[in-house]
Amino acid sequence: MSRDRRQLLLMLTPYLVGLVVLVLLPAAATMAMAFTETDLIAGSRLVGWDNFVELTGDPAVRAAVGNSLSYLAVSVPLRLVLAVGLALLLHRRARAVGTARAAVLLPGAVPELAYGLLWLWLLNPIQGPVNQLLMLGGQGGRTMFGSLPPQWLTDPEDARAGIVLMSLFTIGETFVIVLTARLALPPEAYELAELEGAHAGQVLRRVTLPLLAPVLTVLVVRDTLLSLQASFVPTLVVTNGGPPPYATTYLSLVLYQDAFEYLRYGYAAAVAALMLALTAVAVLIQWRLLRRWASRGLVGGQARLPGN
């Protein structure tokens, strides 16, 4: 082995050790545990596929799978559209752009638990600022749109919308990545469009979005991976999975409750395995779609212009 390679390996070692000891081994242990009944008191015993069979009939798990998937389908696209929109809005140098960028980043810097508690107040149906805002100019306890104010904590639909609403403000990382990618796009591409008299919509559709597509692809996959877990703290703190029985019960919450409230570690491990499988399937479907689009030239290619 050459000196350089040995040095590289040496520098990589701490990370590799961490990865194996803290991630891969626990993950393997969890997968093994999914075939046992473990409560950390009476020891564990092998139960084969029993946990998985029970999963299929568990109403909490069934509700959670549906909730998690619909959360993915709504939250991921909305977050991306919002982040891209803000990045394109704030990529130019102008007055107060720095402040605005900071404002987009800030909610992501709030500790998750504090963020959850904050929303508990924001979403309070009577004193909460969100509903206060909605009821501005409304008549007789109705909102400005004439509808009854949303019952964020007690109505199942409103509660799910509330969880999505909470997720729309923590887009700082996606925003920064899109902003950077946009700033790296070659100005000539825009001047070319300008010379042809392209209007803003055409520039967006024919220049900006296609050139950003490779970055957006990665962001969609990444956000999907994170979203299944990101729904955990808000639901634990704000809705506790309710309104009953399972309106905002997501897989991450089921996993937590089974493990740390009911002390059914084996069963919780089986839920984790289900989450992993769902994530893998979601990413695989996206990957397939993107591959197909790329082969038709809709996405992909190099973000940089060739030449120079």
């Binding site: 000539e188 190099q302 030449g307």
Partner: peptide, 21 residues
């Protein structure tokens, strides 16, 4: 504006769009 002048320009970097044939 540039689009109303009816001029065409070749840039030094060619400026081809990578996602298009």
């Amino acid at each position: 504006r540039p689009g109303q002048r009816n001029v065409s320009m070749v840039f030094q970097s060619y400026s081809l769009l990578p996602h298009l044939t």
